[in-house]
Amino acid sequence: MSYSKEITVSKSGVPKIALVALAAVFVFGLFVVGYDQGHLFSVVFGEQAFADLYIHELTHDMRHAAGFPCH
């Protein structure tokens, strides 16, 4: 007669999909808060986005407070 047993094991490998997802979140978030000067919205609103600077204004205070260069 055979039966199965459930055990808990520790696996220390790092899934590549997790690394790719987290790296993407890192790059996107850093760009939004620290670097966007209208670039993201320019995809939809064109050149006007560089004048409106909606994301820049939204992240303006955190940009200064976190140490990123600003205008």
Binding site: S2, Y3, S4, K5, E6, I7, T8, V9, S10, K11
Partner: peptide, 8 residues
């Protein structure tokens, strides 16, 4: 930690 089922 992941749970594994092992045959006995």
């Amino acid at each position: 930690k992941i749970k594994q089922t092992t045959p006995q």
